[in-house]
Design a protein around this nucleic acid. Sequence first.
DNA 1: AGAAGCCGTGAAAGCGGTTTCGCGGGTAGT
DNA 2: ACTACCCGCGAAACCGCTTTCACGGCTTCT
Lengths: 334, 334
Amino acid sequence: MVPNPRPTYTVIAKTAGVSEATVSRVLNGDESVHPDRAKRVHEAVDKLGYRKNRVASALASGRSGLIAVVIDDDLSVFSDPFWGTVTSGVSRILSESGIHTVLMVSPVGSADGGVAHYLKSGEVDGAIFFVLHSDALVNNLKKTGLPMVIAGTPHSSLDIPFVDTDNFGGAYAATKHLINKGCHKIGIITGDIGTTAAKQRLDGYLQAFRETGRVPAKGLICEGDYSLESGMENTRKLLRDHPDVDGIFASNDLMAAGAVTVLQDMGKLVPDDIKIVGFDDALIAQTTRPALTTIRQDVVALGEAAGRLMISQLDGEDVQPFITTTELIIRGSA
Amino acid sequence: MVPNPRPTYTVIAKTAGVSEATVSRVLNGDESVHPDRAKRVHEAVDKLGYRKNRVASALASGRSGLIAVVIDDDLSVFSDPFWGTVTSGVSRILSESGIHTVLMVSPVGSADGGVAHYLKSGEVDGAIFFVLHSDALVNNLKKTGLPMVIAGTPHSSLDIPFVDTDNFGGAYAATKHLINKGCHKIGIITGDIGTTAAKQRLDGYLQAFRETGRVPAKGLICEGDYSLESGMENTRKLLRDHPDVDGIFASNDLMAAGAVTVLQDMGKLVPDDIKIVGFDDALIAQTTRPALTTIRQDVVALGEAAGRLMISQLDGEDVQPFITTTELIIRGSA
DNA sequence: AGAAGCCGTGAAAGCGGTTTCGCGGGTAGT
DNA sequence: ACTACCCGCGAAACCGCTTTCACGGCTTCT
């Protein structure tokens, strides 16, 4: 059926008049081949439209040209545009180096299990983790020497490169903004406190708070879980416990949106009665009325950084954690 | 370093006392092996913790166990939670069959180019396409016999299996709902008319409209592009041209949300003055005030269907296009 | 009873690259 | 001039699994 099956080294070698070994050297950038011969090989490659069989190459060399993006969770996480964006950033950077992205969406509870086996199987050259709920797997994998990058700050201080948003700084800026706007009693609705990001945002809030010389009253810190419902619920709770709250920092925009709707249903004016700052600068920040003042994070940069860190590791370079900066976006809510 | 390098067929064969060929047969489910021997092989596999090297397997068999998910666009599309959800649905179904998902986010303009080459290279066993802007690539690829699935109705009537939402039916139901609610002058804000989904939704609207015996006045049909801004802009235009509009069907929730905010900014009451219906039942449908009446599509099912269609093809079965049903979700906006 | 099929199995030839090893020739050291 | 190296290059082994081929032993048909 296929008129012209893909050529192999045998053919290239023959038409270039060299050995297959030389073809391999040329195609892998071995400098030691005489320029003339290299040229002949390149000509043959062009002429025959040769493309290397990556599978064969992977088998022989042990390098697959594939890196895994592991999302430690279920469907819901990936439906979050945040991770979609990060992933495409990763994918784009990697593909520039001829590396493809294998997607694995699965709870990665234990250090064993399917994903772990796969990663250990040598079928991928590295792994990038999103939304790690536990460090068990990466800790275990570290021993295998598999290059890894973690998106988000790890729980324990692993010696594994990671990329993250400046959660602390962003939360600090958000809280500071509320203070500057004259808020005196500022509540926070945290994210899922099992995540390091949520903790860091809480810390940023606390830091800004402390600098005012006060300590956050009990009950001003509400533990949410990043969902719309938790934003609404915690806002109600906050106002019940502290009717005089005049500012709320929500750890993401979704909860901030929840806060806005609840407050409006209660007859409170945003931002006149209560000011609200969110985090993410998600799309929803623009559709609430008033639109949300929020902390923008550079999601694409985050993904690209993760990709670059991986590439660097594959190249055997030393890598440093990478923290992207945040930006305060002022809209109507504060 | 590694104390126990992964065992190979050689080892399994030896400890099971059979030939490597038999090991291969057992591990690939060849029925013709005597049960006793098969049992011995399985025992050896368990005992040694053997896991097949997929790369070697791929090279020898020509089947890589990888399928590509190709998103014909740039970052922005993937930040849409819609595609993230579809992708994870695909990924989950495929992984149940031991197949992994390779993600490719890239404009697939021509029938040539990097993606095309990769797909032709035999490195993947199949390809699933999202957001196809043109049928050129798939048409070209069809000749190679590569199993393909298209998410979304293709532009031309290709003989390639696809999965899609019942866009027509959903739009029809949405428009019908507006009519039933007593709307007389109903506008539509379409999606990017370069996509078949947008066209089908427009058709559904037109059909419902026609059944009333009227024809949509010129200017009631506004061409949007699924973005928040286009929703806002077209709403303004709609009201400028037809101040007496009393219903709007927006082809997605984002534009519907834009419509709601614009109308409110203009001092119009939703749903009292103007009723609005969206499409998708995205998260944003719940966060607008009033919440959006919309057409829910089963996005996860769509992804899973795409995955299943692919599996079926790999198994050599005949496959039929798959259309998921929609559901009218009534909330406050209409 | 002999020819013809079948069946389960192992030996071995790939799949298409990569990499080690060693050879011949040229350069350098003494 | 002779030994010691270095360099570019080809032969061949090898990566780990799949698949063809053929063989010995049985059953079945004539």
